[in-house]
Amino acid sequence: MTSSQLPAATPEALAASHELVERIRNAIAARKGWLPFSDYMRMALYEPGLGYYSGGATKFGEAGDFVTAPELSPLFGACIATSVAQVLQTLGTGDVLEFGAGTGKLAAQILTELERLDTLPRHYYIVDLSAELKERQRATLHALVPHLADKVVWLDSLPQQFTGFVVGNEVLDAIPCALIYNSEDGELLERGVVWRDNALAFDDRPLADSPLRDAAQALELPGDYLTEIQPELPGFIASTAHLLQRGAALFIDYGFPAIEYYHPQRKQGTLMAHYRHHGMTDPFYLPGLADLTCHVDFTGVYQQGADHGLQLEGYVSQAQYLLNAGLTARLAAVGPDNIKQYAPVAAAVQKLTSPAEMGELFKVIAFSKNLELSTMLAGFEHGDDSYKL
């Protein structure tokens, strides 16, 4: 699809994107004409006031650029709440902490189900970098669960210690990635961003000695192969492990174990841009208005968790997790007799679980720390794929 076929941006949005491009140009100049792609991605997503997640553009739902699972159905959050409730009941008390809460719908769904199960947390903390999204989350919670909204507390930084349940839905894929290219003759290069012919462009440079080079060498990539490494992912998992004193952490995202992520046939990597429900391979299209993501290496997530004292509780596809957590029973409770009510719910469930939609591409991984569960963590009883990690 060409840019002329994509939905047009408003003049105000275009002006914001152009301002962001100027800041990126200045950053390139300050780095002597070459900016690592991870730095570009960080600016495109998080530059104050202009980045995709720090600006004011609508991101989620039909009017945004993509639809996340909580936007599809409240049954998604209800299933996650099954895992949350088990952990909170085991602890006797505790809190919930959500990374990157989007529109706030997942928080509302989890709180609604926890109330039904009589297992409400002391607090529901949200860590989000976007001021615009925080306001949207407040509005969503006051609209959907006004009597529970006072349980929600927004944090600007991670707490020093935390006991309870940590959840992150489509958070890991938004951690900036470095682009690594192993040339045909086996030279490791880092793909960066330059300003060329009055536009942003790619440029490869030899990968300098660094932890990033060590990580790239460990992958033993074939020749003529492009892939991503998320330099900040180890720190994110380490921080989560450090703050979690007792409890569990659950992450849902699209990705693969390393054996699939770095498969020889995946030689162009997984980097994608998302704009108005269209996927693109050009990461330079309207910076600040398009989302940038890469798939998650779940083997790396597991290894970092294990290295920092987290116990793996399970790794399954999203479809398997939701079915384990009672999705079928929840759908049946809607009742097929009222087709007008049942049909859209069934359609959403199909998208959440179908291998052709989100069911197999999205994975769910969970860890625990200092937590003695009497049974397996809810959602991981069947179909565990941990052996693939």
Results as ranks from 00 to 15, higher is better:
residue 116 R to H: 15
residue 97 L to D: 08
residue 61 G to C: 04
residue 284 F to S: 14
residue 288 G to H: 10
residue 338 N to H: 04
residue 203 D to F: 06
residue 339 I to Q: 11
residue 265 Q to G: 03
residue 235 G to D: 13
residue 196 R to P: 00
residue 234 P to W: 02
residue 172 L to N: 10
residue 283 P to I: 05
residue 243 L to M: 15
residue 84 V to W: 03
residue 108 A to K: 07
residue 213 R to V: 04
residue 152 V to F: 01
residue 70 P to D: 05
residue 171 V to N: 00
residue 23 R to S: 03
residue 213 R to G: 04
residue 196 R to K: 15
residue 140 T to A: 08
residue 92 G to V: 09
residue 174 A to N: 14
residue 334 V to H: 08
residue 326 G to W: 09
residue 47 E to I: 01
residue 236 F to V: 15
residue 50 L to G: 10
residue 179 L to Q: 15
residue 123 H to Q: 13
residue 266 R to T: 05
residue 388 K to C: 12
residue 387 Y to F: 13
residue 220 E to P: 00
residue 107 A to V: 14
residue 278 H to C: 10
residue 163 T to V: 05
residue 235 G to C: 02
residue 90 T to N: 12
residue 229 I to P: 01
residue 373 L to D: 03
residue 344 P to D: 06
residue 108 A to M: 09
residue 329 A to N: 14
residue 99 F to P: 06
residue 18 H to G: 00
residue 60 F to L: 14
residue 173 D to C: 03
residue 17 S to W: 02
residue 202 F to T: 09
residue 80 I to V: 14
residue 212 L to D: 09
residue 185 D to K: 11
residue 173 D to E: 10
residue 1 M to S: 10
residue 150 D to I: 00
residue 360 E to N: 05
residue 23 R to T: 03
residue 63 A to P: 01
residue 37 F to I: 06
residue 244 L to E: 01
residue 103 T to E: 07
residue 213 R to C: 05
residue 180 I to R: 09
residue 225 Y to D: 13
residue 147 H to S: 07
residue 229 I to L: 15
residue 82 T to A: 13
residue 122 R to L: 12
residue 367 F to L: 09
residue 134 K to S: 15
residue 145 V to K: 09
residue 346 A to Q: 11
residue 347 A to S: 12
residue 194 V to H: 02
residue 347 A to Q: 14
residue 209 D to L: 04
residue 3 S to I: 13
residue 376 M to T: 13
residue 72 L to Y: 06
residue 187 E to P: 00
residue 323 L to Y: 12
residue 29 A to P: 00
residue 130 S to P: 14
residue 324 N to M: 07
residue 276 R to M: 07
residue 113 E to V: 00
residue 188 L to C: 02
residue 223 G to E: 11
residue 289 L to V: 04
residue 28 I to V: 12
residue 47 E to Q: 14
residue 389 L to N: 11
residue 379 G to Y: 07
residue 120 L to F: 07
residue 68 T to D: 00
residue 205 R to Y: 01
residue 127 V to A: 07
residue 78 A to I: 02
residue 70 P to R: 01
residue 363 K to V: 06
residue 114 L to A: 02
residue 64 G to K: 04
residue 274 H to G: 07
residue 36 P to T: 07
residue 332 A to G: 02
residue 163 T to A: 02
residue 376 M to E: 03
residue 11 P to N: 11
residue 140 T to F: 07
residue 230 Q to I: 05
residue 125 Y to I: 04
residue 147 H to I: 00
residue 71 E to N: 11
residue 66 F to Y: 15
residue 281 T to N: 13
residue 111 L to C: 10
residue 265 Q to L: 14
residue 69 A to R: 11
residue 114 L to H: 03
residue 306 A to F: 06
residue 243 L to N: 01
residue 311 Q to F: 01
residue 313 E to D: 12
residue 27 A to I: 07
residue 104 G to H: 08
residue 271 L to K: 08
residue 299 T to F: 06
residue 225 Y to W: 13
residue 369 K to V: 05
residue 217 Q to P: 04
residue 361 L to K: 11
residue 144 L to P: 00
residue 334 V to R: 10
residue 138 R to D: 10
residue 65 D to V: 02
residue 279 G to L: 09
residue 279 G to W: 02
